[in-house]
């Protein structure tokens, strides 16, 4: 197994309070991993760390052969300002950023790529629609089209199927399966355990600290899930500096 990502005693958090605490381990290249855990478990924080949006409080993340900006990232939909006056086409075309940068022109070939991505997610004909007029499912389809354009070796999805109907989930899951078949490394934060068991070979159960990590069947046992649920969520304002050596 070649490693795509390795976490070395990784601690991520905010204002010195850890949200992900002492994580060690590796994500195999080409693997499809579900990151599972209660709200506040550190799933989003871990992903922000992986794509380089936040810096580790301690430890480090080793990216084998990719730069942070080469990782395609699907943020939680709540982080997007849907009142902003931008249309679907422009939003999807942002996926070309890595190839086009700040100033690169969008040529005829690129326009075809954008159209193809829109077609792949079933949004043909939505090009000129303002993003504020999309439904939740259409919004997520649009963001998946942008991911398609990013054409990345590593793809990180933060709660991709939240508040999405069954049809849209199934369509988007099919794209995720395609990425897996194409040997891309995919990480997804999910809450639907049945979906994880059915489609994700690997799982990481996180509750600030890793509870279990490995083949999905061995990770998502009732005991592990109960254990994760009991780990405290709130920051302790009186917390001492962590004693574990960095």
């Amino acid at each position: 197994m070649t490693e795509q990502l390795r976490f070395h005693n990784l601690t991520l958090g905010y204002d010195r309070h850890p949200a992900v605490h002492h994580l060690n381990g590796a994500i195999a290249s080409g693997s499809l991993t579900a990151v599972v855990g209660p709200n506040g478990a550190g799933k989003s924080t871990l992903f922000k760390g992986v794509v380089g949006v936040i810096k580790p409080l301690a430890g480090r993340i080793e990216l084998n052969g990719v730069r942070p900006q080469d990782i395609a990232y699907l943020p939680q939909i709540a982080d997007i300002d849907r009142t902003f006056p931008v249309n679907v086409y422009d939003m999807v075309a942002m996926g070309l950023w890595r190839r086009k940068g700040l100033f690169g022109g969008i040529g005829r070939k690129d326009r075809d790529t954008v159209e193809a991505a829109l077609a792949a997610v079933g949004l043909t004909g939505f090009e000129q629609r303002a993003i504020g007029t999309l439904s939740g499912g259409q919004m997520q389809r649009m963001l998946f089209a942008r991911l398609l354009l990013q054409d990345a070796r590593v793809i990180v999805l933060d709660e991709p199927f939240n508040a999405i109907d069954a049809k849209t989930s199934a369509d988007l899951l099919a794209l995720v399966r395609t990425w897996h078949a194409e040997q891309r490394t995919v990480l997804a934060a999910l809450h639907d355990l049945d979906l994880v068991k059915a489609h994700f070979p690997d799982a990481l159960l996180l509750a600030r600290e890793p509870v279990a990590w490995g083949a999905t069947a061995t990770v998502l046992t009732p005991e592990n899930i109960l254990k994760a649920r009991h780990m405290c969520e709130a920051f302790d304002e009186q917390a001492e500096a962590c004693a574990v050596a960095a």
């Binding site: 794509v51 990232y73 300002d81 902003f84 931008v86 422009d90 939003m91 942002m94 990013q150």
Partner: peptide
């Protein structure tokens, strides 16, 4: 014109911008 893309993207989707660029 030079800063148009990051300026727009920082408003719509700051998380995505930070994941692709430092601009």
């Amino acid at each position: 014109a030079l800063i148009y893309r990051p300026l727009v993207l920082e408003c719509v989707d700051p998380g995505f911008l930070r994941s692709v660029s430092r601009a």
